[in-house]
Amino acid sequence: MSLALNAIGLKKNYEGIPVVNGISFDIKPGECVGILGPNGAGKTTTIKMIYGQVIPTAGELLVLGLNTKKDITQIRSRIGVVPQEDCLDTDFSALENLLLFARYHNMDSDLAHAQAEHLLAEMKLSEFKHKQVEALSGGMKRRLAIARALIHKPQFILMDEPTTGLDPQARLWIWNYFERLKANNTTLVLTTHYMEEAERLCDRIIMIDHGVILDQGTAKELIERHIGLEVIELSVGSEKGYWLSKVEQAGLKFQEYEEKLFIFFETSELKQSFIGNIQNTHYYVRSANLNDVFLKLAGYQIREKS
């Protein structure tokens, strides 16, 4: 089976500074892939290269077997995109937004109406269809942007931070909807900051930072490879030196964060025996998760959006 996406040595420089620095990855049809990374990692630039709003400085990018350099119009007619900012047309109502998009896709008018009404019902927006976009809530706008991306029934969907800024209910609803799309064998590529989202939805995760791929695999593989099974968060305070030597002696993997140590254990037995050493220090035991992998690979420092 041919690949849904094939990126080879993809590079993008802005004023000589690499934002995406030679990344290569594949996406199979029907796969749900999450691109994870901190602010400024190159996620949005990568996504924009896929739908042709950013032209790569170097490298090859094939989407559904078509080259983004030559066939971007054809690519856009076959993929659906939910951009980071909804980019809804505020001069029009919800229904009109969908119908306009159907026109841009050169869809037949009857088919466009039927598909727009169907998607509005699916997105629980039917009763707001004549409302101007500005009057809709953040969650509704997002659902409308998703409906808009689906108007021409694409089999490949790109979503740039689809649930950022939404409340937990709206997020949960969107996750459920994405699961339905997945069950329908739609190829999904999404960027996200939310580890839970990536862990829950994505068959495979590509972690990027400073424009390069740090690692990729399933959430389980990444957690096992970089962290292990369980984590102890130890509040070491002023005794950091003492605890560091202890952890190093035991040959354990760990990360330092201010007055805390995150100690990673591959088995419960190792964890139990380490807990035996702790007497007057506060600690917290939990399962290893994707957040640990993310912080370990991307670092703990705060990234401001530029």
Partner: peptide
């Protein structure tokens, strides 16, 4: 309004 950015998501 990003109307053109939206149009460029289509053919």
């Amino acid at each position: 309004q990003k109307t053109y950015a939206a149009m460029l998501l289509t053919p």
